[in-house]
Amino acid sequence: MKRLLIGLSTAAMVALSAAPAGAAPNIYHTISSTHGSAAVVETVGCERTEIFVSSMSGMFAAQPGPVNKQGLTSLFVRISDICAAPGRGVVLFQADGMNFAPLDVDSRLTSASITTDMAGTDGDGNPVTISLSASWTGTGPLEHDTLSSHENIPGVGNVNSVDNNLRRAATATVSVTVNGLTAAGTDSNAVLEQVKARCIEVARPGVEEFFPCFGFPG
Protein backbone atom coordinates (compact mmCIF):
# COMPACT_ATOMS: atom_id res chain seq x y z
CA MET A 1 0.00 0.00 0.00
CA LYS A 2 3.02 2.31 0.09
CA ARG A 3 2.35 3.43 -3.47
CA LEU A 4 -0.92 4.98 -2.29
CA LEU A 5 1.01 7.34 -0.02
CA ILE A 6 3.09 8.87 -2.81
CA GLY A 7 1.42 11.94 -4.33
CA LEU A 8 -2.00 11.62 -5.92
CA SER A 9 -2.25 8.09 -7.31
CA THR A 10 -5.33 6.31 -8.71
CA ALA A 11 -6.92 2.91 -9.30
CA ALA A 12 -9.70 1.00 -11.02
CA MET A 13 -12.87 -0.22 -9.29
CA VAL A 14 -12.48 -3.04 -6.76
CA ALA A 15 -15.38 -5.47 -6.26
CA LEU A 16 -16.91 -5.58 -2.81
CA SER A 17 -17.14 -9.35 -3.11
CA ALA A 18 -13.60 -9.45 -1.71
CA ALA A 19 -14.90 -8.29 1.68
CA PRO A 20 -15.51 -10.85 4.45
CA ALA A 21 -19.09 -12.03 4.89
CA GLY A 22 -21.25 -9.52 6.74
CA ALA A 23 -18.67 -6.72 6.58
CA ALA A 24 -19.23 -3.34 4.95
CA PRO A 25 -16.63 -0.90 3.60
CA ASN A 26 -15.44 1.58 6.21
CA ILE A 27 -14.15 4.03 3.63
CA TYR A 28 -14.02 3.97 -0.16
CA HIS A 29 -11.25 6.21 -1.50
CA THR A 30 -10.87 7.61 -5.01
CA ILE A 31 -7.76 9.50 -6.09
CA SER A 32 -6.76 10.82 -9.50
CA SER A 33 -3.80 12.82 -10.74
CA THR A 34 -2.89 14.09 -14.21
CA HIS A 35 0.63 15.40 -14.59
CA GLY A 36 2.72 17.10 -17.25
CA SER A 37 6.47 17.63 -16.97
CA ALA A 38 9.08 19.25 -19.20
CA ALA A 39 12.80 19.99 -19.09
CA VAL A 40 14.05 22.57 -21.57
CA VAL A 41 17.81 22.92 -22.07
CA GLU A 42 18.90 25.12 -24.95
CA THR A 43 22.26 26.72 -25.70
CA VAL A 44 22.86 29.65 -28.05
CA GLY A 45 26.49 30.68 -28.23
CA CYS A 46 27.71 30.94 -24.63
CA GLU A 47 24.23 31.31 -23.12
CA ARG A 48 22.49 28.23 -21.78
CA THR A 49 18.81 28.33 -20.79
CA GLU A 50 17.32 25.69 -18.49
CA ILE A 51 13.60 25.52 -17.65
CA PHE A 52 12.01 22.77 -15.57
CA VAL A 53 8.20 22.68 -15.34
CA SER A 54 5.87 20.38 -13.43
CA SER A 55 2.11 20.88 -13.49
CA MET A 56 -0.76 18.69 -12.30
CA SER A 57 -4.44 18.55 -11.49
CA GLY A 58 -5.73 16.16 -8.86
CA MET A 59 -8.86 14.96 -7.13
CA PHE A 60 -9.43 13.12 -3.85
CA ALA A 61 -12.72 11.79 -2.53
CA ALA A 62 -13.75 9.46 0.26
CA GLN A 63 -17.20 7.92 0.46
CA PRO A 64 -18.75 9.17 2.59
CA GLY A 65 -17.14 12.57 2.21
CA PRO A 66 -16.69 15.56 -0.12
CA VAL A 67 -14.75 15.69 -3.40
CA ASN A 68 -11.57 17.77 -3.13
CA LYS A 69 -9.86 19.14 -6.25
CA GLN A 70 -6.52 20.92 -6.43
CA GLY A 71 -3.80 21.86 -8.87
CA LEU A 72 -0.08 22.35 -8.34
CA THR A 73 2.41 23.97 -10.71
CA SER A 74 6.11 24.54 -10.06
CA LEU A 75 8.90 26.01 -12.16
CA PHE A 76 12.65 26.57 -12.09
CA VAL A 77 14.52 28.69 -14.65
CA ARG A 78 18.25 29.37 -14.94
CA ILE A 79 20.33 31.24 -17.51
CA SER A 80 24.09 30.65 -17.47
CA ASP A 81 27.19 31.85 -19.32
CA ILE A 82 28.94 28.55 -20.00
CA CYS A 83 32.00 30.26 -21.51
CA ALA A 84 32.81 32.39 -18.45
CA ALA A 85 34.04 29.42 -16.39
CA PRO A 86 34.66 26.36 -18.57
CA GLY A 87 33.28 23.19 -17.02
CA ARG A 88 31.04 25.07 -14.57
CA GLY A 89 29.61 28.18 -16.12
CA VAL A 90 28.42 31.32 -14.36
CA VAL A 91 24.78 31.78 -13.44
CA LEU A 92 23.46 35.03 -14.92
CA PHE A 93 19.93 34.67 -13.59
CA GLN A 94 17.71 32.10 -11.92
CA ALA A 95 14.28 31.97 -10.30
CA ASP A 96 11.80 29.44 -9.02
CA GLY A 97 8.17 29.50 -7.93
CA MET A 98 5.07 27.44 -7.26
CA ASN A 99 1.30 27.92 -7.03
CA PHE A 100 -1.93 25.92 -7.07
CA ALA A 101 -2.87 26.50 -10.71
CA PRO A 102 -4.19 23.24 -12.25
CA LEU A 103 -3.02 21.68 -15.50
CA ASP A 104 -5.65 21.73 -18.26
CA VAL A 105 -5.42 18.33 -19.99
CA ASP A 106 -7.72 16.11 -22.03
CA SER A 107 -8.58 12.61 -20.82
CA ARG A 108 -6.62 10.85 -23.60
CA LEU A 109 -3.43 12.83 -22.88
CA THR A 110 -3.24 14.18 -26.42
CA SER A 111 -2.73 17.78 -25.28
CA ALA A 112 -2.34 19.89 -22.15
CA SER A 113 -1.57 23.47 -21.20
CA ILE A 114 -0.94 25.81 -18.28
CA THR A 115 -0.84 29.61 -18.27
CA THR A 116 -0.34 31.29 -14.93
CA ASP A 117 1.46 33.97 -12.94
CA MET A 118 3.15 32.79 -9.75
CA ALA A 119 5.04 34.37 -6.90
CA GLY A 120 8.65 33.21 -6.61
CA THR A 121 12.17 34.22 -5.70
CA ASP A 122 15.29 34.90 -7.72
CA GLY A 123 18.74 33.51 -7.06
CA ASP A 124 19.37 36.13 -4.37
CA GLY A 125 16.12 35.38 -2.54
CA ASN A 126 14.34 38.50 -3.79
CA PRO A 127 10.61 38.18 -4.53
CA VAL A 128 9.66 38.07 -8.21
CA THR A 129 6.56 37.40 -10.29
CA ILE A 130 6.97 34.60 -12.83
CA SER A 131 4.72 34.36 -15.89
CA LEU A 132 4.54 30.85 -17.30
CA SER A 133 2.97 29.56 -20.50
CA ALA A 134 3.47 25.90 -21.39
CA SER A 135 1.74 23.45 -23.71
CA TRP A 136 2.13 19.73 -24.35
CA THR A 137 1.27 17.82 -27.55
CA GLY A 138 1.16 14.04 -27.36
CA THR A 139 3.53 12.34 -29.79
CA GLY A 140 3.72 8.71 -28.72
CA PRO A 141 1.18 5.92 -28.22
CA LEU A 142 -1.02 5.88 -25.14
CA GLU A 143 0.60 3.44 -22.72
CA HIS A 144 -1.63 1.70 -20.18
CA ASP A 145 -0.97 -0.55 -17.20
CA THR A 146 -2.79 -1.60 -14.05
CA LEU A 147 -1.64 -2.75 -10.64
CA SER A 148 -3.88 -4.44 -8.09
CA SER A 149 -3.47 -5.27 -4.42
CA HIS A 150 -5.77 -7.43 -2.28
CA GLU A 151 -4.44 -7.79 1.25
CA ASN A 152 -5.94 -9.63 4.21
CA ILE A 153 -4.64 -8.39 7.55
CA PRO A 154 -5.36 -11.25 9.99
CA GLY A 155 -7.83 -10.30 12.70
CA VAL A 156 -8.07 -6.71 11.49
CA GLY A 157 -9.61 -6.50 8.01
CA ASN A 158 -9.15 -6.39 4.26
CA VAL A 159 -7.83 -3.65 2.00
CA ASN A 160 -8.36 -3.81 -1.76
CA SER A 161 -7.02 -1.42 -4.39
CA VAL A 162 -6.32 -1.15 -8.10
CA ASP A 163 -4.23 1.47 -9.91
CA ASN A 164 -5.03 2.40 -13.50
CA ASN A 165 -2.13 4.25 -15.16
CA LEU A 166 -1.85 6.08 -18.50
CA ARG A 167 1.24 7.63 -20.06
CA ARG A 168 2.03 9.34 -23.36
CA ALA A 169 5.29 10.82 -24.65
CA ALA A 170 4.89 14.46 -25.65
CA THR A 171 6.57 17.56 -26.95
CA ALA A 172 6.37 20.60 -24.67
CA THR A 173 6.76 24.25 -25.59
CA VAL A 174 7.57 26.53 -22.64
CA SER A 175 7.88 30.30 -22.22
CA VAL A 176 8.80 32.08 -18.99
CA THR A 177 8.98 35.81 -18.25
CA VAL A 178 10.58 37.17 -15.07
CA ASN A 179 11.36 40.86 -14.44
CA GLY A 180 11.10 41.61 -18.16
CA LEU A 181 13.45 38.75 -19.06
CA THR A 182 11.97 36.03 -21.28
CA ALA A 183 13.27 32.48 -21.66
CA ALA A 184 11.70 29.91 -23.93
CA GLY A 185 12.32 26.56 -25.52
CA THR A 186 11.06 23.11 -26.48
CA ASP A 187 11.37 19.69 -24.86
CA SER A 188 10.80 16.84 -27.33
CA ASN A 189 11.13 14.28 -24.52
CA ALA A 190 8.35 15.59 -22.28
CA VAL A 191 5.64 13.36 -20.83
CA LEU A 192 1.97 13.39 -19.85
CA GLU A 193 0.78 10.93 -17.19
CA GLN A 194 -2.50 10.05 -15.52
CA VAL A 195 -2.97 7.85 -12.48
CA LYS A 196 -6.34 6.76 -11.10
CA ALA A 197 -6.67 4.71 -7.95
CA ARG A 198 -9.45 3.37 -5.78
CA CYS A 199 -9.04 1.76 -2.42
CA ILE A 200 -11.53 0.05 -0.12
CA GLU A 201 -10.97 -0.52 3.60
CA VAL A 202 -13.09 -3.25 5.21
CA ALA A 203 -12.60 -3.72 8.96
CA ARG A 204 -13.49 -6.91 10.83
CA PRO A 205 -16.52 -6.60 13.13
CA GLY A 206 -15.55 -4.70 16.26
CA VAL A 207 -12.32 -3.27 14.78
CA GLU A 208 -12.00 0.53 14.89
CA GLU A 209 -9.44 3.02 13.53
CA PHE A 210 -8.67 0.81 10.50
CA PHE A 211 -7.27 3.15 7.82
CA PRO A 212 -4.58 1.27 5.82
CA CYS A 213 -5.20 3.13 2.54
CA PHE A 214 -3.77 6.44 3.77
CA GLY A 215 -3.36 6.11 7.50
CA PHE A 216 -6.18 8.50 8.35
CA PRO A 217 -9.97 8.59 7.94
CA GLY A 218 -11.45 10.26 4.87
Rank of each mutant, 00 (worst) to 15 (best):
H144T: 11
P127D: 03
R108V: 14
R198A: 09
D96A: 09
A190Q: 09
L109E: 08
G157D: 10
N158F: 12
H144I: 05
I130F: 04
T182M: 04
V176N: 01
D187V: 12
L109R: 06
A190D: 11
D122N: 15
D163A: 13
S111A: 14
V195A: 14
T182Y: 07
I130P: 06
V195Y: 14
A112T: 06
V128E: 07
L142C: 03
N179H: 02
P154G: 02
K196W: 11
N152G: 02
T110F: 07
A190V: 11
G123Q: 13
T173A: 13
G120R: 03
T129E: 06
T177D: 07
A172I: 07
G140C: 10
M98S: 14
S113Y: 08
A183Q: 08
L109T: 11
P141C: 10
T182S: 11
V195R: 15
S175M: 02
P102N: 04
L192R: 06
S149F: 05
E193L: 13
R108Y: 11
N126E: 09
M118E: 04
G97L: 05
R167C: 05
I114A: 04
I153N: 08
L192I: 12
C199S: 14
A134P: 01
A183K: 00
V178L: 12
T177H: 08
N189E: 14
V105T: 09
G185L: 13
S111Q: 13
H144R: 10
P141R: 11
A190L: 11
D117R: 10
V162A: 13
D124V: 00
N189H: 10
S161Y: 14
K196I: 13
L109P: 11
L192P: 09
K196P: 00
T182L: 04
T139S: 14
N126V: 02
G140N: 09
V176S: 02
S149V: 06
A172M: 03
S111G: 10
V156W: 02
S161C: 10
T137F: 07
V191Y: 06
V162W: 01
M98W: 02
L142E: 02
T110C: 03
N99K: 04
T177C: 08
A190S: 15
D104S: 12
G185Q: 12
L132C: 07
N158T: 15
A203Y: 05
G123S: 09
G138D: 07
S148H: 03
N158A: 11
N165T: 14
V105L: 03
S135D: 01
D104Y: 01
E151Y: 06
D163G: 08
L192M: 15
T121G: 07
L142W: 10
V176Q: 01
T186W: 10
E143A: 13
D104G: 01
T177F: 07
L132H: 02
F100R: 01
D124S: 12
N164H: 13
G138I: 08
L103D: 06
G185A: 12
G120L: 08
A119I: 03
A183I: 00
V191W: 04
T173R: 12
